[in-house]
Design a protein around this nucleic acid. Structure first.
Length: 425
RNA sequence: GUGAGAGUAGCUCAGUUGGUUAGAGCACCAGAUUGUGGAUCUGGGGGUCGCGGGUUCGAGCCCCGUCUUUCACCCCA
């Protein structure tokens, strides 16, 4: 019986696995050089954990199960709740700031489409315990640092940055009620995807007052934080914070990657301050990454009120972006063989295996051919395996324990006593 | 969950108005090649034409259903 792969999943054959490792290794390196420590949690959690922030609708988007003890569980669709749980558990003993990263495998039962699958990897970095835009700046910098290290430039990608605090202050300054804010956030978040007419219509439904509508459209059209009209102290403070953030990003040398964009709202309710998304400049892909400040998260998961900011970057959109820009090879090496051992006759096979084992024991990568025979054919195999060196056991070995060692790059070969070679490793 | 396109060898695809035993390139295996590598040539293996049903004397081709996939919508942590 032939069983097909499950919808929305990927099989990582060695060449594809090499690409995944290229991405994941880059994430880990970027995290570590920016001062983050790695953590991970279980691949499933209580279903309830994901309902706290997102409500019951989210259950349809989750892979959930009931275990034999009747526990309602779900495969993790994100790692932030796990992070909140883990930090809360040890909150009094963890040194601040907590700068943690993770590259979890996540599952969401959504319909697959371009840049979105049902199982994927997502790089998460979070800074907990710092109520200051310096932390937001560092999160944004780290994301850009990674993308830049792969060869993407400010002509390819932009970090669009805004502030929930600013938006909230502006909306309230024109008389929007606190309880209507989240509905308007959702609408504004969609604006880029809607036609002007459709947006107009939805806005009218949400905010019937024509004067208020115009005010919203007016401040949403602002293209620089410098041009925000200071309505009151609260707006002024929010503006100052955004200005400070841009100053820091300038200082960190990534200002050309960053732009202020009022339309970045993020659908998620839990953001409380700076929010940002990184997009391809062409704008045909969904966001490469998104994040922001969520100062209430730990409290919402039963912990103390501690400031937090972070971001997530999925591998699907990123891979498309890298592919489009020719920044990820499709023939990345799947292994690296230092020595490939071949022998011309079957009676040397035992010696070949013994030699291979000795090289491996010495810490070098070695492999041997299961077949003895024609040197030309076996060498072709060595070549296909991209072995750095090929060691031939033949007449020279029979006559005097001599190995023929060929450098596959230069084509030069030398002869060496078996014992001498092994001790030199 | 809604809508549209696609599905033929491991991969990329041909396949005539429906007509005998379904093809090519690449990949794989072997030989040419009895001690020196990415080439060339020759040969070989590999298919329930996604699956199920229907129309027909006859279906890879037409119709229906279903699964998968691609793209868009909903959603997007």
């Amino acid at each position: 019986m032939k069983i097909p792969p499950v919808k929305g999943t990927r099989d990582f054959y060695p060449p594809i696995m090499a690409r995944r490792n290229f991405i994941v290794d880059g994430w880990k390196k970027a995290s570590l050089r920016n001062g983050f420590e790695e953590y991970d949690g279980p691949i499933f959690e209580y279903l309830k954990m994901y309902q706290i922030k997102s409500g019951d609708e989210i259950v349809e988007q989750l892979f959930n199960l009931t275990d034999r003890g009747d526990r309602e569980l779900a495969i993790r669709p994100e790692i932030t709740p796990t992070l909140a749980r883990m930090v809360n558990q040890q909150v009094n003993s963890l040194p601040r700031p907590i700068k943690w990263f993770s590259v979890p495998r996540l599952c969401r039962a959504e319909r697959p489409q371009k840049g979105r699958l049902r199982e994927f990897f997502q790089w998460n970095i979070d800074i907990i315990g710092i109520d200051d835009v310096r932390a937001d700046a560092e999160v944004i910098f780290t994301a850009i640092d990674y993308l830049r290290s792969l060869g993407l430039t400010s002509k390819d990608i932009k970090a669009k940055i805004s502030s929930r605090k600013l938006l909230s202050a502006l909306l309230r300054s024109i008389g929007i009620d606190e309880k209507d804010l989240s509905a308007i956030y959702v609408l504004l978040d969609k604006k880029a995807k809607l036609s002007d007419e459709a947006f107009e219509e939805m806005l009218t439904k949400q905010v019937p007052d024509k004067v208020m509508q115009d005010k919203i459209k007016h401040f949403m059209a602002v293209d620089s934080v410098e041009h925000v009209v200071i309505e009151n102290d609260e707006v002024a403070r929010a503006v100052d914070e955004v200005k400070e953030l841009f100053k820091l990003l300038e200082l960190m040398g990534v200002a050309d990657f960053c732009t202020f964009d009022m339309h970045i709202v993020r659908g998620l309710a839990y953001y409380t301050g700076i929010v940002f998304e990184i997009h391809d400049v062409v704008g045909e892909l969904r966001a490469v990454c998104g994040g922001g400040r969520f100062d209430n998260l730990l409290r919402d998961f039963g912990g103390p009120e501690i400031a937090a900011t972070g971001m997530g970057m999925g591998d699907c959109v990123l891979e498309i972006l890298l592919e489009q820009n020719g920044l990820i090879a499709n023939d990345l090496p799947t292994r690296s063989i230092d020595y490939y051992i071949i022998c011309t006759e079957d009676l040397l096979m035992m010696q070949a295996i013994s030699l291979t084992a000795k090289i491996r024991t010495a810490g070098k990568c070695a492999d041997f051919s299961y077949k003895s025979g024609k040197v030309g054919k076996l060498m072709k195999t060595a070549s296909e395996l991209k072995a750095k060196n090929c060691i031939i056991l033949g007449q020279e070995f029979i006559d005097g324990q001599e190995l023929v060692i060929k450098d596959m790059q230069t084509g030069q070969q030398k002869q060496e006593k078996n014992e001498t070679f092994i001790t030199s490793l």
